[in-house]
Design a protein around this nucleic acid. Sequence first.
DNA 1: CAAAGAAGTGTAATGATATAACGTATGTTT
DNA 2: AAACATACGTTATATCATTACACTTCTTTG
Lengths: 129, 129
Amino acid sequence: MSERKLTRNQQLVLDRLAASGSALTAYDLLDQLRGEGLRAPVQVYRALETLGQRGLIHRIESMNAFIACCAHDHQAAAGFAICDDCGEVAEFAFPASEEGLRSEVGKAGFETRHMTVELHGRCAACAGR
Amino acid sequence: MSERKLTRNQQLVLDRLAASGSALTAYDLLDQLRGEGLRAPVQVYRALETLGQRGLIHRIESMNAFIACCAHDHQAAAGFAICDDCGEVAEFAFPASEEGLRSEVGKAGFETRHMTVELHGRCAACAGR
DNA sequence: CAAAGAAGTGTAATGATATAACGTATGTTT
DNA sequence: AAACATACGTTATATCATTACACTTCTTTG
Ligand SMILES: [Zn+2]
Ligand SMILES: [Zn+2]
Ligand SMILES: [Zn+2]
Ligand SMILES: [Zn+2]
């Protein structure tokens, strides 16, 4: 059987990310969890690694930050729309484009294992509509 | 009038990236250009910034690395297929999927200004075909 | 051409992100 | 209970990127 229960540190990190709703860096998380007894970056990074392997969080490469997954049980790749004005990050799926990208590089014999899709711009709220 | 001529440092960095053909980190570049007189990270980062603004190079977010643009005069967004076995990075265009992504987030009122699209996997050569 | 402004330079220090190494503890399987 | 896998805390270090400052070079324009 798989799916161990999350450990205390893992749960703390996941809960903090989920409560935040936004993307946090490892050091943001460390600062916010010092009150819970976390003291060193490596404790946060270890929790983040496990949570990532289990698909409970995503890493936002262009921000060096992490966010709780809001979809769970991914069939498809995750994309992110990142507002550079307010920092909001919205997760989205893009099944048609995903297939398009996969086949675009597949023509050259490339086997895609993971996609990083991060759109930077301005969210509806910040555009003032 | 725009389009200044590239300075010595900028040309050194661009030439090194173009000659390499692969993605290099700022510190890779610094090491390889010490013989040309470069001494400090900031010299490389400054050149990289200008080159990026002019569209002569791209930053690969998921590698903290930089690569020479092989397309020039981008109408479209750039995507990258990155082989995790050999490190090869291939730039590609994806006009249809690009439009799909843009409209996917556009439904929520998001205005896309820049796309990071990085596909990790295995290249044809490494797959042994 | 000379003055003014914009862009670039080198040096030094620092900040921000991430991992390695070590020995110990805890939980699960047999 | 022994063996194994996973996680722990601590310390140190590696890697990536920027700030600050004083000075120089290039470009524009009066
Ligand atoms: Zn997700
Ligand atoms: Zn916004
Ligand atoms: Zn390009
Ligand atoms: Zn390869």
